[in-house]
Design a binder for these strands. Structure first.
Length: 511
RNA sequence: GGCGGCGUAGCUCAGGGGUUAGAGCACUCGGCUCAUAAUCGAGUUGUCGGUGGUUCGAAUCCACCCGCCGCUACCA
């Protein structure tokens, strides 16, 4: 069995973090991409999960008087709640503390060890005695101080197993050059390439100063460095070493969606590990930008200031999902603000889309008792223009495959605006007064048929709204059974269906 | 310091050697009245960061300068 599945992943989230709009951003984008591929008929496997090992987790657990496992189990629901809140359609959820993961990690690392890619050496790093742990240089405060105790750290040596990363630098450079799409966007690829070209050092792959991790099978007292453990989730969850058939259908992953802060691990360490083990590398690592809040980088301090649940409560889940993808170019940093979210809600969703649905269904209701008529009147210039707008939307949405969500949504709104313009051009209220029944039938049919297409095309981004809209149209088939390109073609609507005006979509926000 | 990127309308941004520089939002005027005072049309605003250069011609290429940002390894 060869690969036949579109496999995409989010990072696995560190349990100690509190879910904030940054995590939600990556996850929603991945979900939209997953739903988009399903809409196009792909078999999709969408993975997310939690990263549960490491010293910080062990410390946090200790402070709470729990075992690390208890601590993780206790916090896990927060992350699962986020997925529920955002209506994420992941097919699997991996925890790095699961047996299916740990056993495969050990096998993978054993393989690297057996073939000589791991060797014992001495790691020297800044160590805080009171923390009983090492820090990254970047974490230290001014003057080599421990960030917690504000006391000088000392250089301490530790015997570790090192991964021969340097050996794979040429292979990595070949990879970046042969597959420019491996790291995206281009800026990020350039960074990664420059980093590797400057020369790689081998990296330590095990730790001994604490024990909360996957045990090293050939050397008691060593556990694997959490990044080796964490990155491997992408293959352990896909069936590596356990279900070779499933694995071969999914791997290599089509895309790992990540934030740019973890680019190096995904674009350097990860492919090097895979190349070493003789496993194919993923097709793409896509690093999106940061969300800025009030002009500042999202950090631990202001991250908790805006909770996804707060925004979902105020704007609704559909607007939440729509806003971040429409407002910000996915590969670049972008600014979140309450005001811009209100603006998107009001202009794009309430005025353009919600009102369009309402005005169309109201006319079908008053002129034809809610029943969609057959398009009897002749089609002319207005219909041709509407058709072009539909083409624009369909062609434009393909931008989603490049993770250019903003561009795709812009083009999709060309159709929303197009239907509004079409209504203005044909003035169904005038046709009704004149008793031009055939023409009116044509217009109403075209409008509802376009709404049908809009429901289909918006469904990856706003699945709830799309479902409500679909229900209003009274169609027999299920929305989730719709597939492109057929469902995007004109005339797919069967005359005679009974529409229901119902509740307005995206009612105006309260002041 | 090195490498890379950015600086275009009030705001967010697109474009990228060639006729009068674009989009959305905001704003102004007009039309319509089916609709969530929604919608549709028309219109206003720019020394395209600065200086110099290449060119018949530069916002678009080059150099330098100013301002901002990213990467420059073992927290995740």
């Amino acid at each position: 069995m060869g690969k036949d599945t579109y496999y995409l992943t989010t990072p696995i989230y560190y349990v100690n973090d509190v879910p904030h709009i940054g995590h939600a951003y990556t996850t929603v984008a991945a979900d939209v991409l997953a739903r988009w591929r399903r809409l196009n008929g792909d078999r999709v496997h969408f993975l997310t999960g939690t990263d549960e090992h490491g010293q910080k987790v062990a410390r946090a657990a200790e402070e709470r008087g729990m075992t690390p496992q208890q601590h993780c189990d206790d916090i896990l629901p927060r992350w699962k709640e986020m997925l529920g809140l955002l209506h994420i359609s992941n097919d699997d959820f991996i925890r790095t503390t699961e047996d299916r993961h740990e056993a495969r990690v050990q096998e993978f690392m054993q393989r690297l060890y057996d073939q000589g890619d791991l060797y014992k050496s001495t790691y020297v790093g800044p160590y805080c005695v009171r923390c009983e742990g090492y820090y990254a240089e970047a974490e230290l405060l001014e003057g080599e101080l421990c960030p917690i105790h504000r006391q000088p750290v000392e250089r301490l040596e530790q015997e570790n197993w090192f991964f021969r990363l340097s050996k794979y630098a040429p292979a990595l450079l070949d990879l970046y050059d042969a597959h420019p799409g491996f790291v995206q966007p281009d800026v990020r690829r350039n960074e990664v390439r420059a980093f590797v070209e400057a020369g790689l050092e081998d990296i330590s792959a095990t730790r001994t100063e604490f024990s909360w991790g996957v045990p090293c099978p050939w050397d008691d007292g060593h556990i694997f460095y959490v990044w080796f453990d964490a990155l491997l989730n992408y293959i352990t969850a896909a069936g590596y070493g356990a279900d070779e058939e499933a694995f071969s259908r999914r791997w290599p992953a089509d895309v790992h969606l990540i934030g740019k802060d973890i680019l190096r691990f995904h674009a350097v360490y990860w492919p090097a590990m895979l190349i070493a083990a003789g496993v194919e590398v993923p097709h793409q690592v896509y690093a999106h930008g940061f969300l800025l809040v009030g002009g500042e980088k999202m950090g631990k301090s202001n991250a908790t200031g805006i909770r996804p649940s707060e925004l979902v409560e105020h704007f609704g889940i559909d607007c939440y999902r729509y806003y971040f993808l429409r407002e910000i170019s996915f590969g670049q940093d972008g600014t979140f603000s309450w005001e811009s979210m209100e603006e998107r809600y009001t202009t794009d969703l309430a005025n353009d889309l919600g009102n369009l649905v309402n005005r169309v269904l109201n006319m079908v209701g008053s002129y034809r008792d809610g029943v969609v008529p057959a398009p009897t009147g002749a089609a002319g210039d207005a219909e041709a223009q509407l058709s072009r707008d539909r083409e624009t939307a369909l062609a434009g949405l393909a931008a989603f495959d490049r993770l250019a969500f903003k561009k795709g949504l812009e083009d999709l709104w060309q159709l929303v605006g197009g239907v509004n313009r079409y209504v203005e051009a044909r003035q169904p209220w005038a046709l009704n007064k004149q008793g031009a029944d055939d023409d009116l039938d044509r217009v109403l049919y075209e409008c509802v048929d376009a709404l049908r297409v809009i429901a289909v095309l918006t469904s990856p981004v706003m699945p709830d709204m799309a479902q409500s809209l679909w229900a209003k149209l009274g169609l027999d088939e299920a929305l989730e059974d719709q597939r492109l390109p057929e469902a995007g073609e004109p005339g797919g609507l069967v005359p005679g269906v009974r529409t229901e005006r119902g509740q307005v979509l995206f009612p105006k926000l309260e002041e």
